[in-house]
Design a protein around this nucleic acid. Sequence first.
DNA 1: GTAGAATGTAACTATTATTGTTGCATCTAT
DNA 2: ATAGATGCAACAATAATAGTTACATTCTAC
Lengths: 140, 140
Amino acid sequence: MNISTRFAVAIHICTLIDSNKEGKSTSEWIAGSVNTNPVVIRRITGMLHKAGIVDVRPGVAGATLARSTAEITLLQIYKAVNVVEEDSLFSVHEHPNPDCPVGKNIAGAIIPVFSLAQKAMENVLQEVTLEQIVNGIPVS
Amino acid sequence: MNISTRFAVAIHICTLIDSNKEGKSTSEWIAGSVNTNPVVIRRITGMLHKAGIVDVRPGVAGATLARSTAEITLLQIYKAVNVVEEDSLFSVHEHPNPDCPVGKNIAGAIIPVFSLAQKAMENVLQEVTLEQIVNGIPVS
DNA sequence: GTAGAATGTAACTATTATTGTTGCATCTAT
DNA sequence: ATAGATGCAACAATAATAGTTACATTCTAC
């Protein structure tokens, strides 16, 4: 199991858009850097657009960031591309035996822990901005 | 995406074994509480056995915990059932364009963050013992 | 207002992981 | 020896991912 590359690609896309303020960041151009199909890029920019992170319009070439890189966190991107459902990073088996004390109560005992663990991970993503990622890319 | 129920089931199994010190915790009996097939249980107890968490022997009915519930952490169980590969909770797209400054360096920029985020999640699991889970189950 | 170029999106495929299942070999205690 | 358990290989059903084709929609430039 692992979290879809959609998240890493979305970060890649946002970083690219920021680094290309002079040119037009079309899905085809972005796809060239990510090395995938333009439709995959459009799917993701569509999600980033719905989340208000990216501006993109039908018929108009090029996506842009909707706000500054310092105001975009990795958590926002992560939520935008929907790689992990709300509070369900960990899945719990359904229908344990209700006639067994353990079966009846196991979900209630572990779900709060799973929730805390997921939150801890997401808190790290919340503390990292797109600006920091961009600064991690050598200007070359 | 979400982490396999194998982890939740493994916790369920360990809790059950502890709550059943008088009886024999056979795969069939455990399967009755989890509400699944005994082979699924054997697969998981096999993994827990390899990790030294559970004692179980071919031909001998019943699994037991290899050490006290206070000495078993959720992180140990999590690692035992191999639900997330080492340092790869998040996956990164392969083969970004090496001729693009962003493509060439994006992996190096995001992997450390992904690593930190995963570690933060795992640290929570490390702080929770099986004993705490067991105590969260009403005696009824 | 039309042509060209881009985005949006549906539909399909290949691949992979999960979960459940059957069948059978192996092992142990009685 | 036998009964009953575990270990394990093999297979099916399901679901998510990633890539691809095709085409409708939209806008800009002319």
